[in-house]
Computed example of a mutant assay.
Amino acid sequence: MTERKTPTQAAAGWYLFLRDYPDDEDMKHRFAEWLASDPAHARAWEDMNVTASVMAGVPRILHMPARTSATPVLHMNAYRVARRFLPGCALALAAACAALAFMPPDMLVRLSADHYAPVAQTRDIRLADGSEIILAPRAAVSLTINGSERGVRLLQGEALFDVRHDPTRPFRVTAGHVTATDVGTVFDVRMDGDATTVAVREGEVHVASARSGIIERNLHAGEWERVSGTTATAGTAPAATIGAWRDGTLIARDQTVAALITALRPWTAAKIVLTDSELAKKRVTGTYDLRQPEASLRLIVEAYGGQVSSLSSWIDIVRAR
């Protein structure tokens, strides 16, 4: 049985679809049909726009599809917003907070991101200077590009950066408390909770932490640095394996089952629940196909006495046999 979405949940979903695929005419048509099919949909869509505007910190109203005879027009001007959410910002903020309970987990990040890669998809971003950013699934970035600087903030997930060096405009990537500055290179940045890992595939990167004394040094090809809280850990890896995920390959080198499951999660819409702490600690070395996350999950855990039980198409339970 398929779970029925509330109008608020559906509006949040449409917001993301239209944001990610703004040129999809078929999707716009289906959205217009959904919007016109129930007055509750129109109210939920109006509330979704208000929520997005409040949370983004600036007025931001999505453009509606071309009007049809069945499509209501939502004039989201300041007067109507104020009237609906009197006495002002306090109630608008309350409405935004209430709507958060029905939003997908990534909604907060996606509202503040300039670019986002959906589940199980990578996304290439080509900048005007010739640099390229490849986002791993569920990764999000915000950009600050102008005449004097090139700045990227990694909001979540993992991204590979192929930078065209320009000494007059440093290319800086900030993730948590860590900043990686290009010295002419290809490098990977990954966020796992409060930990940030920078790994260099080609060239050289300067890595520094905003927390004094933790780390400030240059990394070269094949070197990586992981900063978690007030601790920094360094290591090396074959340079060619860094960023291998962009080709759909997961390379494990003495990593825990728990770490590999974390790496698989962005590549599947199913929620993976690991219930066995001993299985989680098992060390794994091998190569797995990220494009086949279900098969890879089973290969990883079954080799160590685990099993995967699918409660539905959306939940995989991993436990010991």
Results as ranks from 00 to 15, higher is better:
residue 205 V to F: 05
residue 246 R to I: 11
residue 45 W to N: 02
residue 172 R to V: 05
residue 102 F to L: 03
residue 142 S to Q: 11
residue 48 M to W: 06
residue 167 P to Q: 06
residue 205 V to P: 00
residue 252 A to Y: 02
residue 33 E to W: 09
residue 192 D to M: 10
residue 288 Y to E: 00
residue 246 R to F: 03
residue 313 S to V: 03
residue 81 V to C: 08
residue 165 H to P: 00
residue 182 D to M: 03
residue 91 L to I: 07
residue 237 A to D: 07
residue 84 R to E: 13
residue 154 L to P: 14
residue 145 I to M: 15
residue 316 D to G: 01
residue 286 G to E: 05
residue 122 T to Q: 09
residue 85 F to C: 06
residue 197 T to N: 05
residue 123 R to Q: 14
residue 198 V to M: 04
residue 194 D to H: 13
residue 291 R to M: 07
residue 27 M to D: 04
residue 177 H to V: 08
residue 89 C to L: 13
residue 17 F to T: 14
residue 108 L to C: 07
residue 136 A to G: 04
residue 119 V to T: 15
residue 288 Y to M: 01
residue 108 L to E: 09
residue 290 L to S: 05
residue 279 L to H: 02
residue 37 S to C: 01
residue 48 M to H: 00
residue 203 G to Q: 05
residue 264 L to F: 01
residue 283 R to F: 08
residue 20 D to R: 08
residue 279 L to I: 04
residue 202 E to K: 15
residue 292 Q to P: 02
residue 207 V to T: 01
residue 65 P to F: 06
residue 65 P to R: 08
residue 206 H to W: 12
residue 305 G to W: 10
residue 197 T to G: 07
residue 130 G to M: 08
residue 114 D to S: 09
residue 307 Q to V: 09
residue 70 A to N: 12
residue 61 I to C: 00
residue 294 E to Q: 13
residue 312 S to K: 09
residue 79 Y to F: 08
residue 317 I to H: 07
residue 208 A to W: 03
residue 302 E to Y: 02
residue 28 K to C: 11
residue 272 I to V: 11
residue 297 L to H: 05
residue 260 L to A: 01
residue 283 R to L: 14
residue 74 L to P: 01
residue 224 W to P: 04
residue 246 R to Q: 14
residue 258 A to P: 02
residue 55 M to H: 04
residue 156 Q to E: 15
residue 307 Q to R: 15
residue 160 L to I: 11
residue 266 P to C: 07
residue 265 R to Y: 07
residue 74 L to F: 06
residue 105 P to R: 07
residue 91 L to S: 09
residue 261 I to H: 06
residue 25 E to N: 07
residue 104 P to T: 07
residue 19 R to C: 06
residue 177 H to E: 14
residue 68 T to C: 05
residue 187 F to V: 01
residue 3 E to H: 12
residue 220 H to F: 08
residue 59 P to D: 00
residue 211 R to L: 13
residue 190 R to Y: 04
